[in-house]
Simulated assay, not measured.
Amino acid sequence: MMQVLPIESGATKECPPSGRLIVLTGPSGVGKGTLMRSLLQRHPELYYSVSVTTRSPRPGEIDGKNYYFISRSKFEQLVAQGEFLEWAEFAGNYYGTPREAVLNQIRSGKLVVLEIELEGARQIRVSFPSALSIFILPPSFDELEKRIRGRAQDSEEAIARRLRCAQEEIKAANEFDIQIVNDDFETALKDIEAALFG
């Protein structure tokens, strides 16, 4: 059975049934990025969609590998042109998923993995109801706060903002197909692999 994907209003394209969109989300500091990096190392056949953001690079982040770092005005221009599959503002910065690259990979039969914020994940659930959505949870809120502070990359104000957002995001976990608690890293990674390949 062919799956029909919404490309733009009024247009559809057929997609081979082997291609699929997988959405990984969860609160800031829960370990999404680390889980994603390990998943990609173990499974190079996965296509990871690099998001676009207006936030500044963190130490060690590389443009085009971790994110595409662009200005707010350029991001807003791309939104106006319909270039994003989803986009959202989080902690004062914009984040978005480039549309065409993802759709092309799904059409070619690839498993495409997105690591995105809650608002973007909700948009994907509406436009791609067949996407597999996975929510990563912390073992506890105290542990999440410890992880965010342990990164030592954000100001106290940014940490407080991330923690407020995290409380709201955790409440949304049940909206997703699968919830995985990132208590033991290796176990969480195996749970994701079982969801994707099981």
Rank of each mutant, 00 (worst) to 15 (best):
V79N: 03
T54R: 08
E83R: 13
S56N: 12
G33D: 15
P44Y: 05
A91R: 13
Q41K: 14
E45L: 06
L78D: 10
L85E: 03
F84Y: 15
S49F: 04
G33P: 09
Q41M: 12
R37C: 02
L39P: 07
I70S: 01
E89L: 08
G92I: 04
A88D: 11
Y48Q: 14
V50T: 12
G29Q: 07
L85Y: 06
G60T: 08
K74N: 05
Y68S: 04
P44F: 02
F75V: 00
Y47S: 03
S28I: 06
N66M: 08
L46E: 08
A88F: 05
T53S: 05
T34Q: 12
Y68Q: 05
Q81I: 01
Y47R: 13
R37Y: 06
E76R: 09
A88C: 13
E76Y: 06
H43E: 11
G31V: 00
G82I: 08
S73P: 02
M36P: 02
I62P: 00
T34Y: 13
K74V: 03
A80V: 01
T34C: 04
L85P: 03
R58L: 15
S73M: 07
E76K: 09
V50E: 10
S73A: 13
A80D: 13
G29F: 02
L85W: 07
F69T: 00
S51R: 15
F84S: 01
A91W: 01
E89R: 06
K32L: 07
E86G: 10
R37K: 15
S28Y: 07
D63W: 08
H43Y: 12
E61G: 09
Y47I: 09
E61C: 08
